Computed example of a mutant assay.
Amino acid sequence: MPQAKRVSMAMVAARAGVSGQTVSRVANGSPKVDPDTRLRVEQAMADLGYRPNRAARALRTGRTHTLGLVAQTLATVGNSRMLQAVAESAASRGYALTVVTLGADGDISEAFDRLRDQGVDGAIVLNEATALARDAAAAELRLVVVDSPPDERFTVIGTDHAAGARTATEHLLSAGHRTVHHLAGPVDSFAASERERGWRDALAAAGASAPEVARGDWTSASGGREAHRMLETGEVTAIFAANDQMALGALRAVAESGRHVPGDVAVVGFDDIADAAEFQPPLTTVRQDFDALGEQAVHSLVSRIEGGADAAPDLLSPALVLRASA
């Protein structure tokens, strides 16, 4: 059986009505292409079944068109959604993705070594792993770090977690609660610390006392356990949980205590995971846009790889989603 003829850049150029150089720029993910032209070339590639020769392109450009992603774990919903968003955004630019997870005791320096050995052009570091990003100076990698304090060694992007937490807390206070209890995330999480800061700021601005923080590990089990401890005091009327999984645990704890949500205890989460609207009752929560965050991370990293602007973009603004739990 004769072998199918390989689709060339010239064939794509003819199909799209552009030059071969324009097809090359699109194939190499260059930002110097008009968006409409890029779409036309990408459609021609799809129609013809064009597949770039990565090995040849790496020899020609000195780049592998592969990005790395470093995460402590992919077991959390936030990290798994970020992985999906990053993978889709990278693929749309013609980049492959290599993922390294650290585990509880992982060494980020070893992760960077592995990524360098695989020839990635740069890497994105997620969430809890950013606490280890101080080792990035020796990484010799272009890096974009998601949810981290500003650092001149790499580009930082993220969601304005403090603003989202303030909005959630203010909503609960405006409903007449004298204060709001907080189910916080892990102590080494930048996102968790920012959400706690926003909660504290809202209470202070309202002249409300800040109850002792209960700290979970992002899981619903930890949220349920800590919410049970809160509820034993009998003084809890509102809970702001640092993510939706812990809020789910809190909903169960309230039900098991013989109380009702939101009549006896109001509950607000953070993230707006896909199932948040299916909780009982449907969860009021703060939505962060994981798709936009993944797109922003890849855009910033590819821009660094291709010599573009290196300025950190503004934090993404989360939004309060009102449902029946508060």
Rank of each mutant, 00 (worst) to 15 (best):
S8M: 00
V18S: 08
S19M: 06
V33M: 11
R38G: 13
Y50G: 02
G62F: 07
G62K: 03
T64Y: 03
T64C: 02
T64L: 10
T64N: 07
H65L: 07
L67A: 09
L69H: 13
L69I: 10
L74T: 02
A75I: 10
M82N: 12
A85H: 09
G94S: 01
L97F: 03
V99Y: 09
V100F: 01
T101C: 13
I108G: 08
A111Y: 04
G122R: 10
A123N: 12
E128Q: 04
A129T: 12
D135T: 00
A136T: 11
L141C: 04
P149N: 09
G158S: 05
D160R: 05
T167D: 15
A175H: 11
G176P: 04
V180P: 08
E196R: 13
R200I: 08
R200W: 00
L203K: 07
A205Q: 07
W218H: 15
W218S: 14
A227Y: 01
L231Q: 03
E235F: 06
V236K: 08
M246K: 10
A250N: 03
A255D: 06
R259G: 02
R259I: 07
F270H: 15
D271A: 09
P282T: 02
R287I: 00
F290E: 14
I305K: 04
G308W: 11
D310C: 14
L320E: 05
